[in-house]
Design a protein around this nucleic acid. Sequence first.
DNA 1: AAAGTTATACAGATCAGTCTATATAATCAA
DNA 2: TTGATTATATAGACTGATCTGTATAACTTT
Lengths: 208, 208
Amino acid sequence: MSETTETAAKAADDKRKKVPQNRSKHEAALIHAAAVLFRKQGYAATGTAEILKRSGAPRGSLYYYFPEGKEAIGAAALEAASKVATRTFRELAGSAESPAGFVQAYASLLAGWMEKSDYTDGCPVATTVLETVPHSDLITPVAKASFNHWQRAVSDMLLSHDWPRARVRATATLILSAFEGALITARVEKSSRPILDTADELSVLLKR
Amino acid sequence: MSETTETAAKAADDKRKKVPQNRSKHEAALIHAAAVLFRKQGYAATGTAEILKRSGAPRGSLYYYFPEGKEAIGAAALEAASKVATRTFRELAGSAESPAGFVQAYASLLAGWMEKSDYTDGCPVATTVLETVPHSDLITPVAKASFNHWQRAVSDMLLSHDWPRARVRATATLILSAFEGALITARVEKSSRPILDTADELSVLLKR
DNA sequence: AAAGTTATACAGATCAGTCTATATAATCAA
DNA sequence: TTGATTATATAGACTGATCTGTATAACTTT
């Protein structure tokens, strides 16, 4: 039986029976709630009780889906956030007509997000990373992979615009580091200025 | 009475009397212990008990010197760390013969620090900032002031090398953001590579 | 003695994580 | 198709440890 058929059958079942499929209903909610809270207030400052409350899941479900506890949900939240960022990088890279254009587009996006959250958000990865790497064995590898994916995405973008091969790695690193840092500064300054200034100067470099 | 006169009088007092002002014996130890711990493992993850133990001070002293509690010692630790960084910026700026030279010198310094700590340290300000800004009224202004001082120090360095006035602000922001971000990446990668790559690319920009 | 500082015991809240009970879904038997 | 059995998932009370902060007594230094 193919997967799609099975899914269809299950969906049909759900309609027939009053009580719906509960599988994974709470799992996704837990990851999402954790990601939001960790990004806003940090890993250690966020208690499991708060995650539970926001997700609507009972305590039992947390330890059912994440037997290793808080660290495991931290890793899951990090991975989810990282994937979103990677996808965004790839999409922007596809539509940008130059490295400078890419940087400007990403800066606009970040500035919009920060403004929308009234500068209470930040990089979802940085917050957790600074509190857990390297001592958490569950989170550290996820963080490493996340930065690797980002680095590859930006490198590919540069290569597709014929950026000098010898500089691709360093340039990609600078772009990522600069935005990572600009997010911190923007939060403290409660302004998008650092993000936009950073992008402008990066553009000068990238236009050569 | 001016502030400087008052400070001088206090210093004289300390010399005359045999037993120096006990005030500050534990206070300084508390601030230092807190700074080290916050930088390594974050603000929320560090309990007052741990700060007390490392500093050798009793619990009573913490709340005697810092009646507002943990947030107050967080602000003090942040301020102390920020001052060290500002002084370092100024010193390096004084001896560097070009903006690119400044960036390379600072990168070497950071790389050395990170290596020495086996990449368990990081920016002492970033860690606390991400967990406390903007919701802590005691820490937020200190963080703001810290970034302002850094920005001014780097801007002055650029100006002294005749960097185009119109770009000074943005360039200084990029330099600070890039290093801030590179520290995070270096920690995850357990390598100084991101710091050095970042500096190399910044140098390209600064040599134009 | 009075003020300044140290020292510790304590309090209430919250922490991450465990436990047992129950309900639903999937699998197998007849 | 039914009924019995096993796995999956929900649910929240509970535990011991640890959290920040307070209270108060004892020491020191003026």
